[in-house]
Design a protein around this nucleic acid. Structure first.
Lengths: 220, 220
DNA sequence: ACAAAAGTGTTCGATATACACCCATGT
DNA sequence: ACATGGGTGTATATCGAACACTTTTGT
């Protein structure tokens, strides 16, 4: 008869230049056998963010990644078990991070966000909301760098933007913009994966908030 | 021992060209006698938004105003009574709306957001968060119009922007921008409050979402 | 007549956009 | 040698920022 509180996490990563979401397969009713985003109930002495971090770690083994509260979903009938309000978070994991394999037996894998299977509860809506937030934030913050390893090439960075914004960007304009922003430090390292080696950079923005003032960062 | 779920609402209005927040005086512990933003527990069969609307109506008598979910605050010790997670909303009320007087005995009044008294719980933080969100949204959405009556003059509209952004704007650039956006319909009415009468306009934007695509709307 | 607020255009600088060729490497 | 993807500059259009005077009304 009481309201229960859960957290659910949309975990994004970039694999094979496609934006993906980590899904698990539910082993118990309701929606047994359906795919779902990871989540669970909030413990009594745990903040919402800690609960989200706990779930994130349980499913992926990582703990030091971008995590942000998304929205709280509280329609009375969203969970057939009873009244469950879910505080949704989303996380960004660099594509090169090796996750602990089978960290949780329930992990089903990484699904392209454009081709999701049927999901349990209102999880489709939650993922859609997260995707929208990610797209928006990409344009005026530095979230894009959260999906890349510490060292990355400009073509890789551009691919992140193109994938999330779902449109092609002009190479020269992209580089000019990055140059103008002054948030990339060129390294004396080159990645020779493919043909001509690409120079590597690191992100040197001093954080997130700094960018807000500047207005839109990436209005391609 | 269970987690309780509440909604709290930051209700903004614009009075005497100052941005204000509706506060109530708490009649019972904890924080008895302290000021607080309106709020209350979510009923069992009520969505989060409905709970917020209910609180809004109880305190102000209005129900047809802008209301948006803000963030969920869930630190374990934010409420001394026990574990209470609060889903915060914010609402915008046109400055000319007459609220039902003494609608709730607890209503204390409209306080300038820059000069708030000590608040109960973590309400100061919630208000700060709402203020920040309002400032940001003002720049790329049409929230500004939610604080004005249906008919308004351009100087009034500009005052909304100046108040919330807390900086002076150039009259000519402001009008040029509004003109360019094409979201104002001039009326054949003038408001003669003061010296030279000001022409009245209405907002004719077809909604909110429409603007997102256009990117930033008001980067003064 | 004077004070107060409404209304009106132009110039300049910054930034977004469009666009094509050469270079370094692996095969 | 050639195919593949990395790397580079310029010209134009759009938009934001700065800036001063005239008009209308109430007193």
């Amino acid at each position: 008869m009481t309201i229960q509180l859960a957290v659910d996490i949309v975990i994004f990563s970039l694999l094979d230049t496609s934006l993906r979401v980590l899904l698990i397969k539910r082993g118990i009713p309701p929606f047994k056998g359906r795919m779902a985003i990871p989540g669970g109930f909030v413990h009594h002495n745990e903040s919402l963010e800690r609960a989200a971090l706990r779930e994130l770690k349980e499913e992926t083994g990582v703990h030091d990644v971008f995590l942000e509260q998304l929205y709280s979903f509280g329609e009375p009938r969203r969970d057939p078990r009873g009244r469950v309000v879910s505080v949704a978070y989303y996380a960004l994991i660099p594509g090169d991070r090796k996750l602990k394999a089978g960290s949780d037996a329930a992990v089903a894998g990484w699904f392209p966000v454009n081709k999701l299977p049927p999901l349990a509860f209102d999880h489709r809506r939650i993922v859609a909301y997260a995707r929208e937030r990610l797209r928006n934030k990409l344009e005026y913050t530095s979230v894009g760098f959260q999906l890349l390893p510490r060292k990355f090439s400009l073509p890789e960075l551009q691919a992140v933007y193109e994938t999330i914004l779902d449109k092609d960007l002009d190479k020269r304009n992209f580089r000019k913009k990055m140059d103008l922003l002054g948030i990339l430090k060129p390294l004396n390292e080159w990645r020779s994966t493919g043909r001509k080696p690409a120079r590597l950079y690191t992100f040197v923005g001093k954080g997130f908030e700094q960018f807000k003032d500047k207005g839109i960062l990436f209005p391609f």
